[in-house]
Computed example of a mutant assay.
Amino acid sequence: MTDPRSVPDPDLATRSEPMQIMAPIVDLCRQPDGARDRQLLFGERVTVLRHDAEWRLIRAQKDGYCGFVQAKSLTACRDATHQVTARSTHVYLEGDLKSPEQLCLSFGSQLSAISETPTFIETPEGFVPRQHVHRLSDKADNPIDVARLFMGVPYLWGGNSAWGIDCSGLVQAALLACGTPCPGDSDQQLQSLGRTVAPGASYEPGDLLFWTGHVALVIDEHTIIHANAGHMAVAIENIDAAISRISAQGDGPVTGHKRLD
């Protein structure tokens, strides 16, 4: 059986139309008006596979994830030049921090610069502080540093933004920012990322630990950072304490240890 997250029903996928997200954040749903699977951010590219009344079946460019978004959340593609690298930022009406804000955008949102000044980039939507963006070609060096930007962000099932994120969303944001391809859900990440480390081996910075339905990023031999329902937030936790807590709450043992080298 094919996975509809990556291989939609061919009877439904009758188009191939490039578009991009025009809202700050959009739910990617299993069905029109269905449950959220993941989220997409401003400026992200998608391929529209089907028109369905007020909904569109799409495939996300960043990871191939398929699902439905509202048609009103899409617009024609522009070439992105920059990406938001602060946890979040405002888009201002003018190149003045006292001017009215037009949008609030999350880390990972993609922007098209029209012009640049020492303090702002100008986009079709307004002006964004230069301190909050980098060029798309400039990649982060360390996924742990990226994950730390989200410390305290509320846990949200299927979340991918600075206003709510889940375990696999955090790992994906951290890895994509460093130029490492990464799928959207933890089971996909376990299957496709890195190499398996033998049980009982030491933990190294940047390793991934998996449980059934959960993933965490190793900071050092003693600690992990993860978006988790125990804290209902992105938190740093002792590895042994996390393993015990997760087991005690009925979610089982560690099911995988992967190394991204």
Rank of each mutant, 00 (worst) to 15 (best):
D52N: 06
H82G: 02
L40R: 06
V84E: 15
A80P: 00
K72W: 12
I58W: 00
Q83A: 12
T85S: 08
V46T: 07
W55L: 04
V48I: 10
Y65D: 09
A80F: 00
L40Y: 02
A71C: 07
C29D: 06
Q70A: 15
R78L: 03
D79E: 13
R38S: 05
P32K: 13
L41R: 00
R36W: 00
D79G: 11
V69E: 01
G34I: 01
T47Y: 00
R50Y: 07
K72G: 11
F42G: 08
R30F: 06
R36V: 08
V46C: 10
T81V: 13
V69M: 03
Q31P: 04
A53R: 14
R50K: 09
E44F: 15
L28R: 09
A71L: 07
T47L: 05
L28G: 05
R59L: 04
R45M: 04
A60M: 03
G64Y: 01
Q31G: 06
K62F: 10
F68E: 14
S73Y: 12
Q70E: 15
L57Y: 10
G64K: 02
T47Q: 03
Q70L: 15
A76D: 15
C66S: 08
K72D: 12
F42P: 07
D79R: 09
T81A: 13
V48N: 09
E44T: 15
D33H: 10
V84K: 14
D52L: 02
D33M: 13
D33G: 12
K72I: 10
T85P: 06
H51C: 11
T75F: 12
R36K: 06
T75I: 13
V46M: 11
W55D: 01
A60S: 13
L28S: 05
D79M: 12
L28F: 02
I58D: 01
L57C: 09
A35L: 13
R59C: 06
K62E: 14
W55Y: 03
Q83M: 10
W55E: 05
D52C: 03
T85E: 09
V69A: 05
C66Q: 02
C77V: 12
H82D: 09
Y65M: 10
A80M: 02
A35T: 12
L40Q: 04
V84D: 15
A53W: 13
A53E: 15
V48Y: 08
V46P: 01
H82P: 01
E44R: 14
R50I: 05
F68Q: 14
L28C: 00
A35C: 11
I58A: 02
E54P: 02
V46W: 02
S73E: 13
R56A: 07
Q70S: 15
H51R: 08
R45N: 07
Y65H: 11
V46F: 08
W55K: 00
L57P: 06
W55I: 03
V48P: 01
P32G: 15
T85F: 03
K72P: 06
E44H: 15
R50C: 09
C66T: 06
R59T: 08
F68Y: 15
V48A: 11
Y65K: 05
D52I: 02
R45C: 01
D63Q: 02
